[in-house]
Design a protein around this nucleic acid. Structure first.
Lengths: 118, 118
DNA sequence: CGATGATACCTTGCGATTCGATGTATTGCA
DNA sequence: TGCAATACATCGAATCGCAAGGTATCATCG
């Protein structure tokens, strides 16, 4: 996951942000995450498995996540949880998202011109 | 610009959204847009010319923008303005953005839903 | 028993978008 | 003359998200 130098490739990395956030709350496994995102956003956001798994692997590779196998009902699952590194990453991404969303919101609703009305 | 079937390719198209919004307010030309975005967002968002011009051309091609040449101070500029089609497009994109941003915001700050236990 | 569907993992190819660099031309200024 | 700013444009590379497909296990139903 190469860092951008100017913008954070805009809004890319939103899946990453959401996944980190979910995992910070509680340990989850890939398949579960896919459904959790759909349900909790009322299907406004739907990320497929082809998005979730690569992100999970990438984050683990970067040390942001930790995984452990667990078999439940004869079903093998891989549970992921956030590391300290991951927490920091989440904080950074959250802030970036907030700033960006605020900037866009300003452009959409905000005053039109009027730069620094003094 | 192909429509997505599930999500709007997430946050892609934000430049398009911003540009349409700027142009709805007033006629502008490419070079001006680049700077306007940087200035009005306090450099939180910076889109290069390599982003702006292609978007401008694409939107005009789709009939969302209209252009007219104008020479000012011996400088040739191409001013763009929003058509009715463009206005509709802006409305759609705005709504999509708002919904998406709200959903993400909910995930970030929102309550930790207890899921269906057992 | 066999079929189907849900669970659970994973990878790949494609398309779309953005980014940085580069190119051209004109104007203003020192 | 040389340099910076203005103003247009395009290209190659990188990235990301997505749909589709692949494997395997388990539960259920006929």
């Amino acid at each position: 996951m190469a860092p951008r130098e100017t913008n954070p490739n805009f809004m890319n990395g939103v899946p990453e942000l959401i996944i980190l956030r979910l995992l910070q709350h509680e340990e989850m496994y890939g398949y579960e995450i896919v459904q959790a995102i759909r349900e909790r956003t009322d299907a406004v956001i739907v990320v497929g498995e082809g998005v979730v798994y690569p992100v999970l692997h990438g984050l683990e590779h970067d040390g942001a996540l930790r995984s452990r196998r667990k078999t439940v009902n004869g079903r093998s699952r891989i549970y992921y949880s956030v590391t300290a590194t991951g927490s920091r990453r989440l904080a950074t991404l959250s802030k970036t998202w907030t700033d960006l969303a605020a900037a866009i919101q300003t452009m959409l609703t905000g005053g039109h011109h009027a730069k620094t009305a003094s």
